[in-house]
Amino acid sequence: MFKRQNRGSGLPPLLVASVAVVGCHGGAGTTTVTRMLAPAAHETPLQQIATQYEPLVLVAKGTAYGLKHATEVMNFCRHNLRYGFLSAPPVLVIVADSVQPDPPTVKARIRLLQDDVRGKSVVRLPYVPAWRDVDDPLSVTAPRDVVDAAATLRQLLQPSSTHHTQGIRR
């Protein structure tokens, strides 16, 4: 699925039994991210962000609209973390919507969210023009930057006190 020529060892193993993946808005790329984390990941409705015992991944498009919704969901996550409904800050995946650089509004909102996510790092899933012309994007060999993003995402989800404690200010 996520093969890359000359990559060596491939993606790091995902050492968690279950991962909740939540789209911050419709069309964010949640299904693609969930499939990148298979078989451990499952899509969770936005209304059910109370994953006390499993890592949480939030997915948003890299647009002003997407980051507006990601900000609203992060506010909800702060509340849930404060009251024990989340055990750790979420991981935030930003799915690029084009090959163009981020507009200023998107850059500013990412900077605002960065300190509140696990590992203080936002995962950027790059735009892949070739995916527009295939029925199943993950059935083709992924470009290097997509595999690298998947590896970063998996690394942030590993059980580690550093990743779990960094993030959301109380």
Rank of each mutant, 00 (worst) to 15 (best):
P39D: 06
P39I: 11
A40G: 04
A40Q: 10
A40R: 06
H42M: 10
H42N: 15
T44V: 13
T44Q: 15
P45D: 07
L46T: 05
Q47D: 09
Q48M: 12
Q48H: 10
Q48E: 11
I49G: 01
I49K: 03
A50Q: 11
A50D: 07
A50Y: 03
T51L: 05
Q52K: 14
Q52C: 13
E54G: 08
E54C: 15
E54D: 14
E54Q: 11
E54H: 15
P55K: 09
L56T: 15
V57G: 12
V57R: 08
L58K: 10
L58M: 12
V59S: 05
V59H: 08
K61T: 14
K61P: 05
G62T: 04
T63L: 06
T63Q: 02
T63F: 01
A64E: 12
Y65D: 09
Y65E: 11
Y65N: 06
G66M: 04
G66E: 03
G66F: 09
L67E: 00
L67F: 02
L67M: 09
L67W: 01
K68E: 07
H69Y: 15
A70F: 05
T71P: 12
E72Y: 08
V73K: 06
M74Y: 10
N75V: 14
F76A: 09
F76D: 15
C77E: 06
R78N: 03
N80P: 01
N80Q: 11
L81V: 06
L81W: 05
F85Q: 14
F85L: 13
L86G: 08
A88I: 04
A88T: 09
P89G: 13
P89H: 11
P89I: 10
P90V: 11
P90E: 08
L92P: 02
V93D: 00
V93P: 03
I94L: 13
D97H: 02
D97G: 04
S98Y: 14
Q100V: 02
P101Y: 00
P101E: 03
P101M: 04
P101N: 00
P101K: 00
D102W: 13
P103G: 13
V106I: 06
K107W: 00
K107P: 00
A108Q: 03
I110E: 04
I110C: 10
L112K: 10
L113Q: 10
L113C: 08
Q114M: 07
Q114E: 13
D115A: 14
D115H: 11
D116L: 08
V117M: 12
G119A: 08
S121E: 14
V122G: 10
V123K: 04
R124Q: 09
R124P: 04
R124W: 12
L125C: 12
L125A: 10
P126Q: 07
P126C: 01
P126Y: 00
Y127E: 01
V128R: 09
P129A: 08
A130E: 15
W131C: 04
W131R: 02
W131S: 05
